[in-house]
Design a binder for these strands. Structure first.
Lengths: 226, 226
DNA sequence: CCTCCCTCTCTTGTATACCGAAATATCACC
DNA sequence: GGTGATATTTCGGTATACAAGAGAGGGAGG
């Protein structure tokens, strides 16, 4: 677990709840009772409320005045719209990254990709997933634009609870790897227009994969959440 | 003023503070004392704290540990980065708007632009500024993508306290009007690539104008805020 | 038997009080 | 006179107590 020392209770609670939401322990739609949470974390309602406020603004939780809070539920059209924006944003990120990444960052990106290839070859799914996520993050940070990084990550957060459904989609990893390879090369070569285009399309496809899951119905989700 | 009934005190305080920041009554860098605000609004510290938390997350306020909260101050490089993202985002908005706006929305956009022309011709600066802002908003909303709208507006908020400085820049309105005309035509014609490109460049220029002000030093700002 | 209204309860929103940490100022000692 | 330690003060974070609104359930009237 994360370090809890040196943190405020509000932060601790927020992180714990985020974790619960990301991992699926708190499914979208689940209601959040302040008092129950306060008991669970052995704190008063005050820091719980603070944590909730932060989660609300990050978009993970929704609250209706005097009516309680629930974990944000995303339907198919929401998801499509989310990825619509996300793919454009990551395309922009790739563009700026291709222009601005330092030689060290480019090297690191290449190294990261090579590690991904290895994880793929050895069939280590979990590791591959992690490295794949990190690839995205590295490109995003490569923009050297704090606002852009924040904006992109803010959207990304909303997708986390759903991402694990795209894990073992047949043949997905292979395509994913090929995409990353091409993107990495474009960025390292400084071909920003190509990088932008490739990354935009890449994320778009990811969205389609995820949307398909949702379109198939919520049965898989229910099973996974149970 | 806004309706205060049916709102929580926290919301009321947040809106009031936002207003103060947007209008310049609370200048960037101004310090915000929780207790003083509580007295001013005749509420306790609790809702004030909640309001502040929200303002912090929206980026309008910054809090330094043990030093109190201040209205976020943006320096030149921040501003440049903000507009870098904003121009890309608005470009994307124009793209989607050109594709998705309903015929009614396109007509409304044209009407709005015509009203702008009239305000420009009659020399009504304030009205022109308002309509110009509305033009942007209408394009943003024309995307019919809630996530994109929110993301764009979230960034836009940070710029509001500074926007009024671009008001009476010599020759600015004229160029602005020409830009809008071209963008409007591109959107109405459904030429999304052109619309995206035009809007991106348009917002970029706006950023340059604003950045120039900041680069000139804060004397003008101090004068305007006084 | 159904429906509508009232009340009751449950949860959220707000007030107030307290605690602990960090900054500053003052005093003592070097 | 300078430096360091300690006390004071202030502010942020937390707890608890209180008020108010929304929904549910029950009772009364149709």
């Amino acid at each position: 677990m994360a370090k809890t020392s040196g943190m405020t209770h509000a932060q601790t609670v927020r992180l714990a709840l985020e974790n619960d939401i990301f991992s699926g322990r708190l499914a979208p739609g689940a209601s959040l009772d302040e008092e129950a949470l306060a008991r669970r974390f052995s704190v008063s309602r005050t820091p719980v409320r603070e944590a909730m406020l932060q989660l609300i603004q990050s978009g993970l939780v929704e609250k209706k005045p005097r009516q309680g809070a629930i974990v944000t539920q995303i339907d198919l059209s929401d998801m499509i719209r989310l990825f619509e924006v996300m793919s454009e944003l990551e395309g922009i990120c790739a563009k700026f990254a291709a222009r601005r990444m330092t030689p060290q960052e480019r090297t690191a990106l290449r190294k990261l990709h090579e590690a991904s290839v290895e994880a793929f070859d050895t069939g280590d799914q979990d590791k591959y997933y992690l490295l794949s996520r990190k690839f995205h993050l590295m490109v995003i940070e490569g923009t050297h634009n704090h606002e852009l990084i924040e904006t992109t990550n803010r959207l990304g957060i909303k997708l986390v609870p759903y991402r694990r459904f795209q894990l073992n989609y047949p043949g997905r990893s292979e395509n994913n790897l090929r995409d990353h390879e091409a993107i990495m090369e474009a960025i390292c070569a400084g071909d920003y227009d190509l990088a932008a285009d490739l990354f935009r399309k890449h994320t778009n496809v990811q969205g389609d994969v995820l949307a398909e899951y949702i379109a198939l119905g919520d049965r898989q989700m229910a099973a996974a959440n149970g």
